[in-house]
Amino acid sequence: MPAGPDKVVLHPLVLLSVVDHYNRVAKDTKKRVVGVLLGEHYKGQIDVTNSFALPFEEDDHDPTIWFLDHSYLEQMYKMFKKVNAREKIVGWYSTGPKLRESDLDINELLRSGFCENPVLVICEVQPKEVGLPFTAYYAVDEVRTDGTEKAKKVFNSLPTEVGQTEAEEVGVEHLLRDVKDATLSSLAGDVSSKLMALKGLQGRLGEISEYLELVLDGKLPPNHDVINIVQEIFNLLPNMNVESLSKSLAVKSNDMMHVIYVASLVRSILALHKLIDNKEGRLWAEKEAAKKEKEKAEEKAKKEAKEKEEKEKAEAKANGKAEEKDAGKK
């Protein structure tokens, strides 16, 4: 039996296809969807470049009862081979969100009929943690050292990463440009990316701490490969006791804080200047409003005086005519 893969590289098109499959079939439900992964296996690396969905059903209460349409799989694979003969079946995907009891049976079905060493990729269509939204597994034979049980298949996790061709990179950038929030500046985007990266690092450190605690408590057997990787991580950490390194970090930190301090001063001065401008503008507006009100009051008083004068003249004229009329009668 040939050796298993060392790494799985998933292309963006596959992730988009999986999300589309889930939204069409199992959105707002607890069901999962299953499909086939197509790509190439070269020097221990599996490049997953394409995929297609499969009709799949399973019993929620009995995990041993499931259905997968073999004839549909065969027909679709034949059509994909006509389009690109280099793409072969390299495994299958599931939206999980975790491994299930029937996964080994499905994996064995693909291994016996379509792919000698299939990989399983579980894609998180609704990820709750920061990081890559998929994990890859490879089935291996596990043999008990004491010989109490027969060899059985188990899933081992594989390193994963996202890879893309030049054409895919252009398409993904165009897609991200359409969904990007135009109100955010480039600085805000950089800060958001740094924050997400730090959250992802915090989650990974938490997983390492939890694993080491379980090993110390005897709840998990020690895995020397994992321990060696953790030791390499600690070896890569800088030695803070070196005076030159501490001094360099202090100088760098002071320079950054100086820039932040100057920026805060400039921001405060601009805010005060704007406050003074606003206050001055408000005073001028109040003066203009008072002046207009005074002019309106003067115009109103003049108008009322003129109307009163005209009224008095009219009354005097009417009284004069009345007196002349009385004098004529006499």
Rank of each mutant, 00 (worst) to 15 (best):
residue 13 L to W: 06
residue 108 E to P: 05
residue 192 S to P: 00
residue 111 R to H: 08
residue 189 G to W: 03
residue 111 R to S: 11
residue 168 E to R: 05
residue 307 E to H: 06
residue 79 M to I: 06
residue 245 L to P: 09
residue 19 V to L: 11
residue 125 V to Y: 09
residue 266 V to Q: 13
residue 73 L to T: 06
residue 248 S to T: 13
residue 125 V to N: 06
residue 55 P to T: 08
residue 325 K to N: 12
residue 10 L to V: 08
residue 74 E to P: 01
residue 34 V to L: 09
residue 140 V to L: 13
residue 124 E to F: 06
residue 56 F to D: 03
residue 197 A to N: 08
residue 20 D to S: 12
residue 135 T to H: 04
residue 85 A to R: 13
residue 294 K to F: 04
residue 131 G to R: 05
residue 30 K to C: 12
residue 273 H to A: 14
residue 13 L to K: 12
residue 59 D to A: 01
residue 158 L to T: 01
residue 21 H to L: 00
residue 239 N to I: 04
residue 103 D to E: 15
residue 318 A to N: 15
residue 147 G to D: 12
residue 272 L to G: 08
residue 187 L to M: 14
residue 56 F to K: 11
residue 252 K to L: 15
residue 260 I to E: 04
residue 158 L to H: 02
residue 62 D to I: 01
residue 281 G to P: 00
residue 153 K to Y: 07
residue 192 S to E: 06
residue 114 F to R: 02
residue 184 L to D: 04
residue 179 V to D: 15
residue 58 E to H: 12
residue 281 G to C: 05
residue 38 L to M: 05
residue 238 P to W: 04
residue 193 S to V: 07
residue 316 A to T: 12
residue 36 V to M: 10
residue 111 R to I: 02
residue 13 L to R: 13
residue 255 D to M: 03
residue 258 H to R: 08
residue 324 E to V: 09
residue 264 S to Q: 12
residue 42 Y to W: 02
residue 319 N to E: 13
residue 172 V to L: 11
residue 320 G to K: 14
residue 27 K to Y: 13
residue 164 Q to A: 10
residue 278 N to I: 02
residue 207 E to C: 08
residue 195 L to I: 00
residue 244 S to W: 10
residue 126 Q to W: 03
residue 77 Y to F: 11
residue 217 D to S: 15
residue 182 A to Y: 00
residue 52 F to V: 04
residue 249 L to N: 04
residue 106 I to E: 08
residue 121 V to W: 02
residue 195 L to H: 07
residue 155 F to T: 12
residue 82 K to R: 15
residue 290 A to Y: 11
residue 167 A to N: 05
residue 163 G to E: 08
residue 13 L to H: 08
residue 69 D to L: 05
residue 21 H to T: 06
residue 149 E to N: 03
residue 41 H to R: 09
residue 319 N to L: 09
residue 288 E to T: 11
residue 100 R to D: 15
residue 6 D to R: 11
residue 159 P to C: 09
residue 240 M to A: 07
residue 329 K to Y: 11
residue 113 G to D: 07
residue 115 C to M: 02
residue 18 V to A: 06
residue 327 A to G: 06
residue 298 E to I: 14
residue 77 Y to V: 07
residue 73 L to R: 06
residue 258 H to C: 09
residue 265 L to H: 13
residue 252 K to V: 10
residue 213 E to C: 14
residue 316 A to C: 10
residue 149 E to D: 05
residue 126 Q to G: 03
residue 237 L to H: 15
residue 174 H to D: 09
residue 71 S to N: 14
residue 119 V to D: 00
residue 209 S to M: 03
residue 60 D to K: 15
residue 4 G to P: 02
residue 113 G to M: 00
residue 114 F to N: 07
residue 170 V to N: 04
residue 202 Q to I: 15
residue 208 I to C: 03
residue 128 K to R: 13
residue 110 L to F: 13
residue 180 K to P: 00
residue 247 K to P: 10
residue 46 I to L: 04
residue 104 L to A: 06
residue 314 A to D: 14
residue 158 L to K: 03
residue 37 L to E: 06
residue 151 A to K: 09
residue 313 K to M: 14
residue 205 L to N: 13
residue 41 H to P: 01
residue 204 R to A: 02
residue 233 I to S: 12
